[in-house]
Nucleic acid binder design. Structure first.
Length: 493
RNA sequence: GGGGCAUUCGUCUAGGGGUUAGGACGCCGGCCUCUCACGCCGGAAACAGGGGUUCAAUUCCCCUAUGCCCUACCA
């Protein structure tokens, strides 16, 4: 069988940031294109002039790139089927609307907004379907010419055929509609701007889109589109409707559910590879007990048929878990790159060291790599390196109020201070010497940890000591001797 | 109101006429351990309800319930 080349598209309306729902739709399309060696096309659906902005388009593109998706055709990128912004394709829509008008498959409607609203409300009050009543379909040619001459604004309505339609959706199987489920709908607004359900058909056909992969909210719209394809005598693409992403309350995910834009997740320190992994798993699975995927692994494993058809709740806990998984897999260099903006924001004085991938910075990151879940947590984990204030520290006050802890702390501070040039070797020698005073195990290590970091929890001492000792050329770093002196000052006698 | 889609642990899901209904997140317990994590081991936890069909339904069909989406001169 001669397979048509796979051409899929992501068609966002540029009215804000890229939403996780949109990101997942884009991802499914992109993964499919890459899996099948097809083309991924970015098309901007900006026919809603009131809400669309170029800034939004840029944000969407930026977020797509951050997630690692690239497109083969699109605005700026170009391609053989452009332009790729609907606002630049008006001639196509106008021409095709006129064609339908000429063929008697559409008609002018002179009804005003107010009239339509009144009709709809009355229909609803009488428990009838609020479909357009066809008033203007019955207008005589003379009447039409009269209104045209008088300059009465009009829309163009599609005359819906009285027949049943069946869609064979790749994901949901057979979807059937009986005649009469739809009223004549508008394809061209009175300001001559086309409407979504119309442009999407024209564009998908002209751009030779092979598969329309989108969210379930468009499933009912597909009926209109099927009618339009038929009216033009075009073969429709294959459709695949993935179900919606829901919030914790099981309604469609939106801003009121908290962070929902891709940009917010980036800000909070999520990794793009974790986002992609999580999003792919939300509504798709390979049919294996497997959760962890890299992007190439996803491309290899992906198929439309294994997208499932029931809605899924966005689970932040699982996303976080995956973020930790991907974070721990990073090499030192990769971790430094991902952490860079977070590190610089928290500790501006480290800027050049971070940018130059300084060995000390790398060792600091290595020290906390398996403790961090979100990059934004790095700040808290490293705070202790540059701050050491026992006076204000309730936790330390309580800890050292215990006699044994206090004694150990004092001894440790004194022994460590007595060493001239501290190295990891003589540091440990000095610290361990208090074993002779009867301290060992927890009784030794807890006071030591408290003395060194000013906290009862943190990185392993084995990792912390070399970091504290090797960073001495950084003025902001509180050195071990300074820590010991402060300790004696506060808890000394 | 009409139409469409959906319903397996709290959540993401596997499975699909005969299974101890599997995995993952989260939760609980344990191990490791100087702490917190990581890692490892173990535990509690699900087929919405009712009718059919069948020797046998969680799985197929119908109904009900529930949820979501669409029903715009939004996309």
């Amino acid at each position: 069988m001669n397979q048509k080349p796979v051409r899929v598209r992501f068609a966002p309306s540029p009215t804000g940031h890229l939403h996780v729902g949109g990101a997942r739709t884009a991802l499914f399309n992109w993964l499919y294109a890459r899996n099948r060696g097809g083309k991924f096309i970015l098309r901007i659906e900006d026919t809603d002039q009131a809400r669309s902005t170029l800034e939004s388009e840029e944000m969407v593109k930026h977020d797509l790139k951050w997630l690692g998706m690239d497109w083969d055709e699109g605005p700026e990128t170009g391609g053989d089927f452009g332009p790729y912004r609907q606002s630049e394709r008006m001639d196509f829509y106008k021409k095709h609307a006129e064609q339908l008008l000429a063929e008697g498959k559409a008609y002018r409607c002179f009804c005003t907004d107010a009239e339509l609203t009144a009709k709809r409300e009355q229909a609803e009050a009488e428990n009838r379907s609020p479909h357009y009543d066809g008033t203007c379909l019955r207008l005589s040619e003379a009447k039409i010419q009269e209104k045209l001459a008088a300059g009465v604004p009009f829309t163009i309505r599609f005359k819906v055929p009285e027949k049943a339609y069946t869609l064979y959706d790749v994901i949901r199987g057979k979807v059937h509609w009986e005649p009469g489920t739809l009223g004549d709908f508008i394809i061209l607004r009175s300001d001559k701007m086309p409407v979504y359900n119309f442009c999407v058909v024209i564009d998908d056909h002209l751009m030779e889109i092979s598969h329309v992969v989108r969210a379930e909210e468009h499933l009912p719209n597909t009926l209109r589109q099927l009618m339009l394809y038929e009216a033009f005598g075009w073969k429709p693409p294959k459709f695949a409707h993935a179900s919606l992403i829901l919030g914790q309350d099981r309604s469609k995910l939106s801003k009121r559910h908290g962070a929902t834009s891709v940009g917010q997740f980036k800000e909070e320190g999520y990794l793009p590879e974790a986002m992609v992994n999580y999003l792919a798993l939300l509504g798709w699975n390979e049919g294996k007990d497997r959760e962890e995927y890299t992007v190439p692994e996803l491309i290899k494993a992906f198929s439309l048929k294994r997208i499932n058809n029931s809605p899924s709740v966005f689970d932040l806990d699982k996303l976080k878990w995956l973020n930790g998984i991907h974070l721990r897999k990073l090499t030192g260099e990769q971790l430094a790159e991902a952490a860079e903006p977070f590190l610089i924001r928290a500790f501006p004085f480290l800027k050049s060291r971070v940018e130059n991938r300084d060995v000390w910075v790398l060792s600091v990151l290595k020290m906390i790599q398996n403790k961090v879940v979100l990059l934004s947590e790095i700040e808290n984990w490293l705070q202790f390196l540059f701050h050491y204030d026992l006076k204000e520290n309730e936790e330390m006050r309580v800890f050292f109020s215990e006699e044994a802890h206090l004694t150990a702390g004092r001894l440790l501070a004194e022994r460590i201070l007595s060493v001239k040039n501290l190295t990891p070797e003589n540091f440990w020698e000095a610290a361990m010497s208090i074993k002779e005073d009867g301290f060992k195990g927890k009784a030794l290590f807890h006071p030591l940890r408290a003395l060194l970091s000013g906290s009862l929890s943190g990185p392993e001492l084995d990792a912390m000591v070399p970091v504290l000792l090797s960073g001495t050329e950084i003025p902001e770093l509180v050195s071990i001797p300074e820590r010991c002196r402060s300790f004696i000052e506060v808890f000394g006698k």
